[in-house]
Amino acid sequence: MQNSHSGVNQLGGVFVNGRPLPDSTRQKIVELAHSGARPCDISRILQVSNGCVSKILGRYYETGSIRPRAIGGSKPRVATPEVVSKIAQYKRECPSIFAWEIRDRLLSEGVCTNDNIPSVSSINRVLRNLASEKQQMGADGMYDKLRMLNGQTGSWGTRPGWYPGTSVPGQPTQDGCQQQEGGGENTNSISSNGEDSDEAQMRLQLKRKLQRNRTSFTQEQIEALEKEFERTHYPDVFARERLAAKIDLPEARIQVWFSNRRAKWRREEKLRNQRRQASNTPSHIPISSSFSTSVYQPIPQPTTPVSSFTSGSMLGRTDTALTNTYSALPPMPSFTMANNLPMQPPVPSQTSSYSCMLPTSPSVNGRSYDTYTPPHMQTHMNSQPMGTSGTTSTGLISPGVSVPVQVPGSEPDMSQYWPRLQ
C-alpha cells in the first residue's frame, strides 16, 4: 500500500499530492522566468500547473527564495509595531506611495530583511487598517496617535501638521516623493554593498519588468496595427511575429492590442446598429396606417339613396333571421326581375335548405315592403301603392349592394327569390 497518492495534472505532468515540487523543477521555473518566458509558457514547457508556477515565482520575487514554506503551523507575524509605524510614516510623507514602493524602502533602510519582509498584500492590509482606524477615531485622537508614531512633539492640530517642515499644504506631496526618490538612490547604494547585491538587483529588475506600465504606442505603430486590423481581426502567430519585427513591439503586446481592438470594434458596431435601427424607425405612426385595407374592405359607393341603408337594423327591421341572411350572402350585381318571367313554384328541397333563413311567422307573405323604405322617402312611396304591378321595390342582398326588384302586385311571395340566388 502506497503512503502517498501520485497523479497526472491537466498538462500531463506527474505530481505527488500534498508534497511540494522538487527543487530542480523550481530552479528551472526561475531560470525560464529570467530568460523572459511568460508564466503560461513555463507552465506548458515544464508541465506544471499555472497556479503552481505563479505561486513559486511570486514567492521568489518577494523573498528571493525558491524553497517551499513549512507545511503546517502558523507563519510568524511580520507586521510588527515597528514595521507598522514605518509604513504609516512613509504614507504620511508621500500619500500616493504604492505598497511595493513601501516594501522596497523597508528593505533599503534595513527595517526588514528578506526573511521577515511583509508581502505587498500585508502592507496593503496595514494601510487599510490605518485608514479604518482613522475613520473610527476622532480628529484629536487621530492626531495624537500619528504624533506618537512619528515621534515628534510638534502641533498636529492642523492639517499642514501632517507634513512636517512644510508650510504650503500643496507642497508636502512633492517633497515626500522627492525624499522617497532619494531613498531609492540609497536603495541602490545599500544593496550594492550587501553580499547578495547582484541577486537582489536582478530580482528587482525582473520584478519591475513584470510590473509594467501601460504600453505607449507611437503613431507609426498605431498606423501599422490599424492597417493589419483592417486586413483581418484575428491575425495568426506568423502575422503577429512579422508585425512585431516590423514595428519593434513584443508579440504578446500585439496580441493584447488586437484583443482590445476587437472589443472596441464590437462596441462601435453595436452603436452603429442602434443608430441604423433608430433612423429606419419613423418618429410617429401615421393615422391612416393604423387601418389596414386588408382588414377593412372598402364599401362601394351607393348608386341610389335607398342603398345607403345596408342592414335591417338601420331600417328599423327587427327580424334577425333576414338580417343574418342578407349579411351572409355574397355580393351580387344589380339585376331586375321582369313581370314576364315565369313564376316557378319553389322546389321543396330548395325551400327546406333555406328554411332556417325565413321567419317562422306566416304573415311574411302579407307584409308590405314599406318597412324598408327610409324616412325621407315615405311620402313618395305612399303616393304609389304597392298593389300595382309596376311598383318597384329595392331588396338588399349584402352591405353596400342594392338590387332593384320588380315585385308582382298580386302576391309578394318571398319564396320566388331563392331559386334565382343559387
Rank of each mutant, 00 (worst) to 15 (best):
A131S: 11
M142Q: 10
T80S: 08
P68L: 01
Q89A: 13
P20Q: 02
N50Y: 07
A99W: 03
S24N: 14
Q10M: 11
A88N: 13
P39G: 04
V84F: 04
S35D: 15
H5A: 10
E62I: 13
I87H: 00
V53E: 00
Y61E: 05
Q10K: 05
N116M: 11
G58P: 04
A88T: 15
A70H: 11
G72A: 01
A33L: 06
Q136M: 11
G12Q: 02
K91I: 05
S49Y: 01
A79P: 03
R125S: 00
N129S: 12
F15K: 03
S49L: 03
N129K: 06
A99L: 03
P20W: 02
V120I: 15
R125I: 00
S6H: 07
I45P: 01
E101Q: 04
C112E: 06
P95A: 15
V120F: 00
L21I: 06
E101L: 13
R105V: 13
M137N: 12
S65H: 11
Q2R: 09
G72E: 00
S65D: 15
V53K: 03
R59L: 14
N3G: 09
G64C: 04
Y143R: 09
E82C: 13
Y90L: 10
A33K: 07
I97G: 08
V126Y: 06
L106V: 06
S119M: 02
L46C: 11
I66E: 02
M142V: 12
Q89P: 03
M148Y: 12
K145D: 08
V111N: 12
Q136E: 15
L146Y: 07
Y60C: 04
S35L: 06
T80Q: 04
V84N: 07
A99G: 07
V78W: 01
S74H: 00
G64Y: 02
A131H: 08
Y60L: 03
R77G: 02
A131T: 09
N150G: 08
T113W: 09
D23A: 14
D23P: 07
G141S: 11
E101I: 10
A79C: 00
V53D: 01
P20C: 02
T25H: 08
L146G: 07
Q135H: 10
E62N: 13
P76N: 03
R105Q: 13
I102P: 00
I29A: 02
G138E: 15
D23C: 15
V84P: 02
R77L: 04
S74C: 04
V83C: 14
C52I: 02
R92S: 12
